[in-house]
Design a binder for these strands. Structure first.
Length: 262
DNA sequence: GGTTCTCTGCCGC
DNA sequence: GCGGCAGAGAACC
């Protein structure tokens, strides 16, 4: 119903169709889908406006076609939904600006990169040039520049998260992935610091108990190390499993989180 | 800037 | 498993 309608049908209507109270329906929906009905509708509308922008010669037309009832409403939040203006989007992300900074942390060097929307990449390594190169490869169309002063707070938050894993930092994220990946990443973020979950548990939690391997792959595709705590995912036999940034780092992160819990 | 709708913690059946 | 209230917060007009 959400997908078939241009605008989000009221919670009441959806609940009625499902034969549940709005309260309960909302909870069941969130548990099953991973996001609230409103968030789901918003994501769907974003997708629709993206396709429209690709096929519709008129930007205004695309916006209305996608179900926005005023284009000022759309422009108000285009930064948050598209990460750029619609014209930039049409050029295929050219003109998208990514800032980055590289700084030492307890795990070696950390690279933090972000768009105006939020942090889009956190990677770990030993060599600054290698890290920067990998970033450029991951975002080939974006213009990538060294971070200015206003970016500092995000970098500090990431470093802080690494050195004080028990504290929750609230850095905005700008991570793109398939719906499945998003759900896995969301599930990872729900694991509290100091605790772990197995790949099988995560798979069950998101409602795909058989997709254990796919969950592992989605963890490996996590673009923001530490912020999405993919290091808290373990194998069912208790072994560490893999880690894109080296098992040693995974071990260190987990140990530090365990200590911080006491 | 008020009104209406969402969302979630808490509780009861 | 399900419903409901309260109250904060977000979206809407």
């Amino acid at each position: 119903m959400i997908e078939a309608n241009d605008t989000l049908p009221p919670l009441n209507t959806l609940a009625q169709a499902a034969g549940l109270s709005p309260y309960h329906f909302h909870r069941v929906f969130k548990k099953a889908v991973g996001v609230t009905p409103r968030q789901y509708a918003a994501a769907h509308q974003t997708k629709r406006v993206q396709t429209q922008l690709r096929i519709n010669p008129s930007i205004t037309g695309a916006i209305y076609e996608a179900g926005y009832n005023s284009n000022s409403r759309f422009y108000e939040r285009s930064h948050r939904t598209l990460g750029m203006t619609p014209t930039q989007f049409r050029r295929g992300g050219t003109g998208m600006t990514i800032q980055f900074a590289i700084t030492p942390c307890p795990l070696g060097l950390v690279l933090v990169a972000g768009t105006p929307v939020g942090v889009c990449s956190v990677t770990l390594g030993e060599n600054a040039a290698t890290l920067e190169q990998a970033l450029r490869k991951a975002f080939p169309k974006a213009s990538i520049e060294k971070a200015g002063k206003d970016f500092k707070s995000w970098v500090q938050a990431v470093v802080r998260q690494i050195s004080h894993p028990a504290e929750r930092t609230d850095v905005p994220l700008d991570i793109r992935g398939t719906a499945f990946q998003q759900r896995v990443w969301q599930a990872l973020r729900e694991i509290p610091s100091g605790q772990t979950a197995t790949y099988a548990e995560i798979a069950a939690h998101i409602g795909h108990p058989k997709a254990v391997r796919a969950v592992g792959t989605a963890c490996g595709a996590n673009p923001v190390a530490v912020l999405v705590p993919c290091h808290r995912a373990l194998r069912t036999d208790g072994k560490l499993g893999g880690y894109r940034w080296g098992l040693e780092r995974k071990k260190q992160l987990l140990e530090k989180e365990k200590e911080a819990r006491e």
